[in-house]
Design a protein around this nucleic acid. Structure first.
Lengths: 340, 340
DNA sequence: ATGAAAGCGCTAACAC
DNA sequence: GTGTTAGCGCTTTCAT
C-alpha cells in the first residue's frame, strides 16, 4: 500500500482507529501488549503519521518561517545554518525563504508563511523595506516574530542585533592606543542603521580623543567590494593617505586590499586596514584582516532561541532586545606598534 | 478576531461557507457581484486561507524537502539558494534540513519530511551514508526524489551530477597543450566518487600523452585546507617540485597557496596551481585560481526543475541523469606559455 | 447561482 | 482498556 493510515492498521487488527492513534502515541489508556502489536503492524505496513492532519487539529505546525535577504551572502547562510541547527534539535522544521533584498518579495514570503500557519517568524528586513503593513497583520494574528540584524524599532517585536556603535568605539580606541591617529573611514551608506551607527562611533571616538575629523577621509559609497575599491583609488589619487582605514564591512575591506595592491602598496607596512566582518571569511584574506568580528552563528542561535521561547510562552513576546557582542581580533592587516 | 475562517465570513454575510470558499477561489459558480462583496469582507476581516486544511484534502503540500550536508559550505548554500529561487517562482515552499554529513541525521530528516508530506525530495547524500533503507521507503511511498552531487547509483532515482572525469581530462589536456608535463595531483580521498573520478581522469590523460605517472606526485589526503597545506609541505620537502599542481577542490588549492607562500615561492612564477572549484570563491584567491568551474547554481536549478517536473508528472520519475557541464577558466595561478 | 452533505487523517472528550 | 462521537478548516460532489 502506498499511503498507510491509522484506519488501515485498525481494520487489519479489527479494532478502532482511536486505539491505534493512542497506541502510537504511547497513551497510558492502551495495554502494553496491544501497543506492541499495533506498533509492530504499523512498522510492517510502513505507516508514517500524517503531520498535516495532526497540525490541522492541534493548530500547531512546529514549523518556523525564516525570511532572509540573500543566502549567497555567507553571513546569512551561517545564520540560517545555525537556526536550522537549533530548530532541528528542538523538533521544529524550518521553511526558508529569500527576499533578494526586495520588499515586495519579502511581503509575499511572509504572507505565504502565515498561510502555512508557521508557529513563528524570523525576519531580517530587506534593505528597501519601509512599509510595515504585513507586520501589522502578523501582530494582529498574534504570530510570534523576532527580527535579526535589521529590524523595525518601534513595532513591539523582539529583536537580536549587533551594537555597532560600541563595536566601532571599542575597536577604534584600541587602534588609537597603538599610536595611530590618521584614520580614514570607508563608511557605506549613511541612510542605513548599519552605516550610520558605525560612523557615529567613528566620529565620537575621534572627537573624544581630540582628533580632528577630516571630511575627505570619510568616504561614503556602498557596502560592496567595488565600493571599497573605488574609495581607495579616490583616496590614493588625493596623494594624502591615512595610516589606517576603518571599513564598514569585509567586502569593502577586500576592495581596498585590491586597490592598494594594484597601487603597489603593502598591507600592513604601507597602509593598515581593519573593519567589521566575520573572521571565518576574513581569515582567507591575504593578509588576514584585523576584524571587529560579528559572529552570525551567535546571532542565529539567539534569535531562534528567543523565538521558540516566545512560541512556547516562556518569554513575553515582543519585549526583548538582545545585543550580540562583537569581538575585536588582532590579525595581520594592521601593524602593531606597541609590543605585546 | 485573531484567526478568521471562511465560516466567519459566511456568518457575517448570512450565506453558506461553500459560497465563500468558491468565491475566494474565483469559481465560476458565483456571481461577480457576490464575489466582490465576499472578497472585500475577507480583506477587511484579515482573512488568510489556512493552507494546512487545504493540504489535508488535496493531499498536495506544494512543499519540497531539501537535505543538504552542510549549509556553511558556500557550494551548498549557493545550491540551496538557487533551489529556493526556482521553488518560489513556481509557487513551492522549501523545508531545508541539514545532515552535517551524518547519515543518521540524514535519515531522520528524510523521515520527518515524509511525515510532513512534502511533494518531493532533493537530497545530497552525506559522506558517510551507505544504508539505503529510508530511500526504499521513499520509493514505496512514491515520493519523487532527485539526488544532486552525491547519489546512489542503482536505486532508480534521478540524479544531477558533475562529470568529473571529463572535467579533469579536458582541463589537463589544456594544461599539457601549454607545454607543461610535470604535474602533481592533490587527490583527496580515493574512497569517494569525487576523489576517484578526478584522479582517474588525471591518470588517463597523462597516460594517453605518454607522461609517466610518478607515484610521489599523487598525494592522497583529504578535502580540506589543511590537507592541501600538508601535501604541499611534503612535496616541497622532497626537493623535487612539479611545474603545476592539480587539486581536487578549492580548499585544498588554498592550502597549497598558503604553504607555497610560506616557502617563499611565487604563484604562478615558481609553481602553478589549478583545480576544481567555484569561481565566485576562487576569484578571491590571490592570485585568482585557474579553475575547473563547478557552478552550484546550475546544479541546484537543474535538480529542482527536474524534481518539479517529476512531481507534476511531466517527466517519468527516477529515469533521468543530468550532467552539469564544467567550464575551464584560465585565471592567474598558472602561467600561460603559449601566447593567445 | 447557491447550499447541504461528506470527507481529507488525526486527536480530544467522553462513554462503556 | 477500548470504542464512539465530534471537529480541526477546507474543498468536492451533488442537489436545489
Amino acid at each position: 500500500m502506498v499511503n498507510v493510515r491509522q484506519l488501515d492498521i485498525a481494520k487489519k487488527l479489527n479494532i478502532s482507529r482511536v486505539t491505534v492513534s493512542k497506541a502510537l502515541r504511547d497513551h497510558p489508556d492502551i495495554s502494553p501488549a496491544m501497543k506492541k502489536k499495533i506498533i509492530a503492524i504499523a512498522r510492517q505496513m510502513g505507516y508514517v503519521p500524517n503531520q498535516i492532519a495532526r497540525q490541522l487539529n492541534s493548530r500547531r505546525t512546529f514549523t518556523i518561517g525564516i525570511v532572509i535577504p540573500d543566502l549567497e551572502n555567507s553571513f546569512f547562510s551561517y545564520i540560517a545554518d545555525s537556526m536550522i541547527d537549533y530548530a532541528t534539535e528542538h523538533n521544529y522544521h524550518v521553511i526558508l525563504t529569500v527576499s533578494r533584498e526586495k520588499s515586495d518579495i519579502e511581503r509575499k514570503n511572509i504572507e505565504n508563511l502565515i498561510g502555512m500557519r508557521v508557529d513563528g517568524l524570523l525576519v531580517c528586513l530587506s534593505q528597501e523595506t519601509t512599509d510595515s503593513q504585513v507586520f501589522k497583520t502578523v501582530k494582529k494574528m498574534k504570530i510570534p516574530l523576532v527580527f535579526f540584524d535589521r529590524a523595525f524599532e518601534n513595532m513591539k517585536f523582539s529583536r537580536v542585533i549587533f551594537n555597532d556603535n560600541l563595536g566601532a568605539t571599542n575597536s577604534l580606541n584600541l587602534i588609537l592606543q597603538e599610536g595611530y591617529s590618521k584614520i580614514a573611514n570607508f563608511a557605506g551608506y549613511s541612510n542605513t542603521n548599519i552605516g550610520r551607527e558605525r560612523t557615529e562611533g567613528y566620529i565620537e571616538t575621534l572627537s573624544k580623543n581630540k582628533i580632528p575629523i577630516r571630511k575627505e577621509w570619510t568616504l561614503e559609497s556602498g557596502f560592496e567590494l567595488k565600493d571599497g575599491y573605488e574609495s581607495f583609488k579616490k583616496l590614493n589619487r588625493s596623494g594624502d593617505l591615512p595610516e589606517v582605514i576603518f571599513t564598514v564591512n569585509d567586502r569593502v575591506a577586500l576592495g581596498a586590499y585590491k586597490a592598494a595592491k594594484e597601487a603597489g602598496l603593502r598591507i600592513p607596512e604601507d597602509i593598515g586596514i581593519f573593519g567589521f566582518g566575520f573572521n571565518e571569511i576574513t581569515d582567507f584574506f591575504d593578509p588576514q584582516l584585523t576584524v571587529i568580528n560579528q559572529d552570525p552563528r551567535k546571532m542565529g542561535f539567539q534569535a531562534i532561541k528567543l523565538l521558540i521561547s516566545e512560541i512556547e510562552k516562556e518569554t513575553k513576546p515582543g519585549q526583548s532586545i538582545i545585543y550580540i557582542e562583537e569581538e575585536f581580533l588582532w590579525k595581520n592587516s594592521v601593524k602593531r606598534k606597541v609590543k605585546k
